[in-house]
Amino acid sequence: MASLKLEDLVTSMLAAAKAVFDKRWPDIKDYAEPEFEKLARTLIQIEGIRTRKKISEGSASVLLEMQKNTTRAVMLAVEGMGLVLIEEAINAALKAVKDVVNTALGFALI
């Protein structure tokens, strides 16, 4: 059985996340990169103790489920950061047209 490699795992996770977050990636990567590395290290840790038969197959599968949940929580944090960026972009756009719109309408809409 081929063992997991930290670099391969991190590279795959980063490539997948970059594709999803596209132009927003530079703002998110400072948080995401070290977190993906931590996720990969824990996966390797679980694989290591299972390969050395220090834990049962049942326990290993529980740890993997826990790891999936941890990954989801990290991705949710990334999603939250993305939402904040989108929100800031929308509000900046609204602010940019505020005077023009309010003047044109004759009352303060924005």
Binding site: Y31, E35, K38, L39, R41, T42, Q45, I46, I49, K54, I55, S56, S59, L63, M66, Q67, N69, T70, A73, V74, L76, A77, G80, M81, V84, E87, E88
Partner: peptide, 29 residues
């Protein structure tokens, strides 16, 4: 199982860290 504890510890640390990271991001700007 004692051997499982370091992985469990890392996962809880990272999970609570993710909750804090999401919260801090909400400070905006």
């Amino acid at each position: 199982e004692r051997e499982a504890i370091p992985s469990i510890k890392s996962m809880f640390n990272q999970l609570f860290g993710a909750i804090m990271a999401a919260e801090l991001a909400k400070k905006r700007g």
